[in-house]
Amino acid sequence: MKMKNEIIDVSNLYKKIEDNVKKVVVGQDEIIKMVFLTLICDSHSIIVGVPGLAKTLIIKLISKTIDCKYSRIQFTPDLMPSDITGTTVLRKDEKETLYKFIKGPIFANIILADEINRTPPKTQAALLQSMEERVVTNEGVDYELEKPFNVFATQNPIEQEGTYPLPEAELDRFMFMIDINYPDKKSEMEILKERIVNENFNVEEGIVKKSEILKIQEYVKTLPLGSNIVETVWKILKNSRPETSEVDKVAEYVKWGASPRAGIFIIAAAKGYALLDGRLTPDINDVVKVAPYVLKHRLILSFKGEMENVKKEDIVESIIKKSCF
């Protein structure tokens, strides 16, 4: 009975966040859900979309809804690692001279890494190390990052000049790659009718406690898992790899498939998705829902796949059909 009450609490919690964000953002319901899913799975996501589709706004509004510290880092070509992690400064007073570490914007709960591919690899690495290890090291001293700690990076797919694409090994640290598309006609008409430039949005702040998010993060990890789900996820991983795949497109167009980390992420995300729907255990449909977000940025196309401009989405769809049905 206790578990059932907790499920209801999670559903209600998400409803509060969703309703608050939808006071401002129109037509991006699935994106809001995937961002919240990233939070409760205690992970990170990368959001890809052209300018003006509310990528930054969604993260900012969710952060406002939760009683936590939010930090936005605008990535530029001249951004240095210390601009993210912090720096040591020399301070003098009448008695002594001290070196003090001034914490950077990475010391927050929800981080927006805006246009992460505009900064050189050295600076990208400073962020990605913090994502993986949840600590910042300065002058040999480790500073733990406060929980929850979730990074949301954004990328603009239409501008490639002067950018530094994230290597596949670093992309692998992001649980989801979330593509944000243009709204449908009804939603866009509503946006055009109701919104004005530089509008002051009236949303409730801090209506969800940070402790509630932490509690759910731990709860997701304890949800039971059926052996059929584990086997299905294993089939997805197997069929994503050209040397073991039963999918013709993979054997022909994919150079490298998904790692075990991808499977761990699929299972965690499926658990979270089930929880949002008021269920204790995930089913195959939950796996089907979350797997595309986990797989897309982990498949590396072969030279032939690149030359023929093969869409990863089509390959992922074939992998899921073969593995889940």
Rank of each mutant, 00 (worst) to 15 (best):
W256Y: 12
G162M: 06
T65Q: 07
L39F: 02
F176N: 06
N309Y: 04
K15S: 08
N12S: 11
N181D: 13
N20L: 06
K55I: 11
C68A: 14
V24H: 03
T56F: 13
Q160R: 12
Y14I: 07
D19T: 14
I106P: 01
K2P: 01
G263W: 07
G272K: 03
I58C: 03
I73V: 14
P157Q: 07
T119Q: 09
Q217Y: 13
P77F: 11
Q28V: 03
G272C: 04
K193R: 11
A274L: 00
T76R: 01
G257K: 02
E243G: 03
I284G: 00
V89T: 10
Y273D: 08
S45Y: 08
R298G: 01
L39G: 01
G140R: 03
I17K: 00
K4C: 02
D314N: 07
T119P: 00
S323T: 01
I266L: 10
I47C: 09
T85F: 05
S71C: 09
D78N: 12
A126L: 08
L295D: 00
E317V: 04
P105T: 10
K238G: 00
D19R: 10
G257N: 00
E161Y: 12
P242L: 10
E188Q: 11
E218Q: 15
E252L: 12
D179L: 11
N239I: 04
V197L: 14
A126D: 03
S227D: 15
N12H: 09
R261F: 04
V26K: 09
L145H: 03
E30T: 13
M34K: 10
A270E: 05
S63A: 15
K16H: 06
D184A: 06
T163F: 07
A262V: 06
I17C: 02
K55Y: 14
D67P: 02
L90T: 10
L145G: 01
A262D: 03
